[in-house]
Nucleic acid binder design. Structure first.
Lengths: 240, 240
DNA sequence: ATACGCCAAATTGCATGCCAGTCTTATCTC
DNA sequence: GAGATAAGACTGGCATGCAATTTGGCGTAT
């Protein structure tokens, strides 16, 4: 499968773009893949050394990520990967639910044939990963599924906003994927969304997608509640 | 009235924040107020001279604005204020409609008393400006009205996204305000939204707000269609 | 007269150096 | 022995200088 996630990670040295754009891209991928976790501190000099550039492009990249909300500035104490509170996280899911619902509705009207095949492929990859209990594969295929719908909306503004938001909550989304049963219940939900899009029923696509993403948020809420009841607060800070 | 727009413009030298944050803020205001129009080129040295800083903070500010989508990079040819196509603009309004609808629904459940007064004040300022045919005053009061609802949602993620989107389409929104009758029809729509929020009816608030913003987009569409029919394409490029 | 090519000026991208504020540690005093 | 204070190292913020690329103009040739 040619996933956007994987393809991004496979190109550590894109010579075409500027150095700062390169750093933005690579940092996004690192955060998306969970290699840098919320709360991690981002040291300019360390990053400059890691990416083999000077501090200037690193600083510019961090500014861009800060504007996206992916990293937060702590004044003179440097920057760190954004750490969402539980309330923020649930709010983020409510926003994501609306935006993905809108994307589904517009995709139902605007999707092109090549994106149909891409969506079908992503859906099948999700099914296969769920059957094989391969969480990482499912995570990537799921990303591809949602990304395809976002692109199929042919709404550049929406696509940009959704991408920003997706990256921001991706570290947390990953932990949801690990919840038992979550993968299996996603499959029929994805199927319903895809069917509605394919038959051009924007209202249905929007409704099912909104429910799907809202369920994800509730799943997260349940998980946190469970962990909190188990008494170990540190697990929460560790997982999310 | 204490408008966010006016207060921002009245503080040309905020000494508390960093220089780059300062430049971000002042550039946003200039774009928001229409002093810099879509397509305008942004020269690093000129900006550095204007704001009395070196190029570095200016560059960092531009990076942040680029990440927000407010300005676009054209490679070695510098940056310019983002110029939305007609399709982009209509898409942006569809996104804004959904986000403002969500904000209204959540505000209906979460609004606090001080924001109630702020919302009432903004609504009355809108009415007064509409009666007095004061377009600029209406523009600011309208901004305040929507901003208050966004803040009253107490959804930080939503507030951020909405703010970004609002700034992006604000130059175009201003031209809509100048449409005859647009101010007058906004008043009862605002009133319905406010009433629904005050009685805690999130579903109604959301529905009315979605219709309100969608109407704005359609008003823009009508305006453009009219201008196109009049044969002068340049007016379109000039206005939007 | 027009078109093609080359040179110069300007502008962006990146690196480096210096400064200011913050955190840490060690020493001194109570 | 413990706490407070001061000094030093560290880190982010900004300015400036250099390299690379684009653009505009001018000259020449067709």
């Amino acid at each position: 499968m040619r996933s956007a996630l994987r393809s991004a990670a496979d190109t550590p040295a894109e010579n075409t773009e500027s150095l700062s754009a390169n750093v933005v891209h690579r940092l996004e991928v690192e955060i998306l893949k969970g290699q840098r976790r919320p709360g991690d501190r981002l040291d300019e000099r360390q990053l400059a050394e890691q990416f083999g550039v000077s501090r200037t492009p690193v600083r510019e990249a961090l500014q861009r990520l800060a504007a996206s909300g992916l990293v937060v500035s702590r004044g003179r104490q440097g920057l760190q990967v954004a750490q969402l509170s539980l309330a923020d996280l649930l709010d983020a899911f409510s926003v994501a639910a609306e935006l993905e619902a809108l994307a589904s509705a517009q995709a139902a009207r605007r999707i092109r044939s090549e994106q149909r095949s891409r969506l079908e492929a992503a859906h099948e990859a999700c099914s296969a990963a769920a059957k094989g209990r391969d969480v990482d594969a499912f995570y990537e295929a799921n990303f591809e599924f949602h990304e395809t719908i976002s692109a199929a909306s042919h709404n550049r503004i929406l696509h940009d906003e959704l991408r920003r938001l997706t990256v921001k909550i991706s570290p947390y989304r990953r932990t949801i994927t690990y919840q038992p049963g979550r993968m299996d219940s996603s499959i029929p939900e994805h199927g319903q969304v895809m069917d509605a899009i394919f038959r051009g029923d924007g209202a249905a696509a929007s409704q099912v997608m909104r429910a799907h993403v809202t369920l994800l948020g509730e799943g997260l809420s349940d998980l946190l509640h469970f962990l909190r009841m188990s008494g170990d607060e540190n697990i929460i800070a560790e997982l999310i």
